[in-house]
Design a protein around this nucleic acid. Sequence first.
DNA 1: TATGAATGAGAATTCATTCAT
DNA 2: CATGAATGAATTCTCATTCAT
Lengths: 196, 196, 196, 196
Amino acid sequence: MPRNAKRDQMVKEERRRQILQAATSVFYHKGLAAVKMSDVATEAGLSYGHVYNHFSSKQELLASIVLEGQEAYRRFLLQAIESPGDAVSKLQRIIDQLFIHSNTAKTYWIVLQAQASDILPEDVKGEIKARMLHNLDLFSRIIIQGQEEGRFAAGDAKEITTIVITLLHNSGLWEIRGLESPKQPILTYILKLVSL
Amino acid sequence: MPRNAKRDQMVKEERRRQILQAATSVFYHKGLAAVKMSDVATEAGLSYGHVYNHFSSKQELLASIVLEGQEAYRRFLLQAIESPGDAVSKLQRIIDQLFIHSNTAKTYWIVLQAQASDILPEDVKGEIKARMLHNLDLFSRIIIQGQEEGRFAAGDAKEITTIVITLLHNSGLWEIRGLESPKQPILTYILKLVSL
Amino acid sequence: MPRNAKRDQMVKEERRRQILQAATSVFYHKGLAAVKMSDVATEAGLSYGHVYNHFSSKQELLASIVLEGQEAYRRFLLQAIESPGDAVSKLQRIIDQLFIHSNTAKTYWIVLQAQASDILPEDVKGEIKARMLHNLDLFSRIIIQGQEEGRFAAGDAKEITTIVITLLHNSGLWEIRGLESPKQPILTYILKLVSL
Amino acid sequence: MPRNAKRDQMVKEERRRQILQAATSVFYHKGLAAVKMSDVATEAGLSYGHVYNHFSSKQELLASIVLEGQEAYRRFLLQAIESPGDAVSKLQRIIDQLFIHSNTAKTYWIVLQAQASDILPEDVKGEIKARMLHNLDLFSRIIIQGQEEGRFAAGDAKEITTIVITLLHNSGLWEIRGLESPKQPILTYILKLVSL
DNA sequence: TATGAATGAGAATTCATTCAT
DNA sequence: CATGAATGAATTCTCATTCAT
């Protein structure tokens, strides 16, 4: 009996998401170095062979995590930028959301490693870099807005953004390193950096 | 003239340093994931079998890089702390030195990955963490000094130190990611963070 | 009008033939090595799971192609032998028919590979060999007839037959190898071989 | 202690030949379909991992067998062509040699399968075909010589050569198929084919 | 029946490590 | 000590086969 094509499609999408989710978690916690496809499968609750029905290789899986993660981050930033409010409240919203969408935070670390390692081919790494710069550019609009509002210090917006992002995402990394999370909200430190 | 035995000893030490240096570079640029022992040997200009005359395994090689790197960092910090001058000038000196001893910067990234990965056994990772906390503690003395001098804002010195270090070492990472180095000296940003 | 059960039966037979036909083509063109069950299914225009409703395994599918192919060849030879005419006209008829029933030519190549490979179990390979020898024997009757008619040279009929068959079927193989088909009719060459 | 570089080189060449030899035998007997790298290694008396020190993949191993086999065949033909004597004696010499250099005979069957299968990439298959046509061309010089000597029938030399080669090499194949080798020398049949 | 998602045995391949020279 | 050939455990990846829908 033929099955319901539409439902099949949805289940398939769901499986893909499930694997991507599991893989993100595993790559984040073990580092690109140590991840086996079977780890990913186990985390996702599937057989390892099945992962290959969705991603043709480990490399493609990693590339998908990174590129789709960057895409999600882009949408995430756009939403923050387009929401009403001043630069400070936008920063606040980004930080809050980042704690909720923990995948986005995890992806930062994975992207960092992927860019530094030889695991992905050069062309994919080029694409990743391009998207990173694009997202940096998006983020910098908030800094520029703050400067225009007279709340943030003048200076190269891209450079300031780079530092803000570094701070923002690394605080998530402290956890892996066994450091305590900051007691003061990270926004406090960021504001010190950008304020007049 | 020293006896052969002594000179042999020195040659051996030199070889060891040579391998460690090569390995640090390779681990930094390719990521722990992608490094083969033969890459290390090639970079060091030695046959790969030879590496095993100095390090009994890849694991030991990595552990040596990390632990000896942390030890070097410790000495480096002690020197900075014990040198004369106020906190700001000590920070300045640390930053300057860090650009010169590029290995220290590279090691930071390797430590980060090693701690996240499964490559090293738990006990070694514990040792690494202990040394990291120890070095953090050392560094925080400079922050505390700055607070006592009335130049730095009050607050949890460890936490502030963590953020300062994060910033300091990540700026070295921008290079791998294809970002430009900051045009403004990184000290400027750090001072914004810690100042009153 | 036939009952559903009967029509179902016919549909099933038709499906089986369809798969066998597709499989023959795929095995011939890709080589036993490279054929996946999904290739067969795709070629037959069916889902790959469906193939298992007709053949319980790849092995059985291959065995069916070979054994049924040999059976068809046997019937084909019998018909040629029993048809009226002298040996030469029988050979002519066989050659003509062979070009029409291209499956027979393809099967020859598949049989050749199957016998050399490990894919089929020994007992099946034994059965195949027995049928091959039986068909060789049938074919040799035509050679013997020619010898009795005084048109063909004397000599071991089986051996001559082997050579004739080799020539006959290999000419079909030239196509895969990218060689042109012979301009002179292959019969010309065969007659040279067998004639006085 | 450094080893003797020259001797090392020779040993390495020898190993390569050893693997190629073993692989040829295994591919010949089992068919491309069924050969595992471990079969090759076992046949060569080496560990399977070691095969990869000489051939980076199964594909490359197969390609090497075929291309080097064709190269050997080319030299073999050149020698036969350039040797003194009439066309018939050259054919005789080729046949005799073929029984001695059994690898050359085996390679024919491997080439046949490689050309028909999808195992090798198109560009390699193209190269194989080009070499096959080149060798066919070389062989045809002997046929042409025979025609010029007035011993062989006129006709398209390439086409006649194709048929002669088919006969020549297939007789080696009878063995795998479980047929007896011809009692009459194969040259007898070939001469029938080409003679006036 | 028909479909293709899911499984896992098995083959290919990699690479740390050993060891004869 | 120095070298790189040789080994095989560990992984990636393929694909025949099963089975829920």
